[in-house]
């Protein structure tokens, strides 16, 4: 755990708002402790920029511990950087060397327009959830929680899907800007559980259609999304959703959607 100070050179995308073009700018940051996080390095740079009467770099962040899904940069071409299973805020400067050049961009994806610098608009993802990412039940009308045993395997699998943090890295990395991984994680979480079964078909149909409607692209099984997902959500959920969707479409044809 021997920490030291390093210098890095950043090439950062700067853009004042959605309606003006952006461009890269180069910044040098010195005396970055390797124990600091990537975002702490950005904080340091921003303090430096304010001192120099320049505009600090706008970026999204909140929890800074990899769970809220707010941070969203593309670092050296990969959303959340090249380290697997990590969000940008979990990335530490320990992973960089003195003198490194680092390129930092916003998510580049049609459904996510840039709002400023590294901040993009990710609201279309919420639209997908609003179309079916829930169990239709009244608050307060539930039966006793243990009245419905659920095997550990199913609960665990559902939890694997539910660990999606909605950061949008899967969309950002996909050449088609598809939101299949995100959508399938929610469909998977709920369709696996007995509580979600009654609306299984409806959910798959509505969420996939909402995804198409919100401007996300088609899935062509490239698989970049799984690699970029900081929570390791598996492509299997896409396969499962495709099955659910196919069954639901057939049932819809016969007018018996569940």
């Amino acid at each position: 755990m021997s920490e030291r100070n390093i210098s890095v050179t950043l090439k950062v995308w700067r853009q004042k708002n959605a309606s003006v073009p952006g461009a890269f700018e180069i910044y040098k940051v010195d005396s970055v402790s390797t124990s600091s996080s990537f975002l702490e390095m950005m904080d340091l740079l921003n303090e430096q920029l304010i001192e120099e009467d320049k505009d600090p770099i706008a970026f999204d962040h909140d929890c800074r511990e990899g769970i809220c899904g707010t941070c969203s940069m593309v670092i050296d071409g990969i959303p959340h950087g090249k380290k697997a299973l990590q969000t940008t805020c979990q990335l530490h400067m320990r992973s960089f060397n003195d003198g490194d050049n680092i390129t930092i961009e916003p998510y580049r994806s049609k459904p996510f327009p840039v709002m400023r610098d590294l901040i993009v608009d990710r609201e279309p993802m919420d639209a997908i959830m609003q179309a079916g990412g829930f169990v239709d039940q009244r608050i307060g009308a539930a039966q006793d929680a243990n009245a419905l045993p659920i095997s550990k395997e199913i609960a665990d699998k559902s939890m694997d899907a539910a660990s999606c943090i909605g950061c949008g890295a899967c969309v950002a990395v996909c050449p088609n800007a598809s939101a299949m991984l995100l959508t399938s994680a929610k469909v998977g979480q709920l369709n696996l559980l007995p509580q979600g079964k009654p609306e299984k078909d409806r959910r798959a149909l509505n969420m996939v259609r909402a995804m198409d409607g919100a401007g996300f692209g088609n899935c062509t099984n490239i698989g970049e999304c799984e690699a970029a997902c900081p929570k390791g959500v598996s492509l299997d959920f896409i396969a499962k959703m495709n099955r659910d969707y196919a069954v639901a479409s057939a049932k819809e044809f016969f007018g018996v959607v569940g």
Partner: peptide, 9 residues
Amino acid sequence: VAQGVPFAR
């Protein structure tokens, strides 16, 4: 649980 929260089991 009714909402689909996957608690540990």
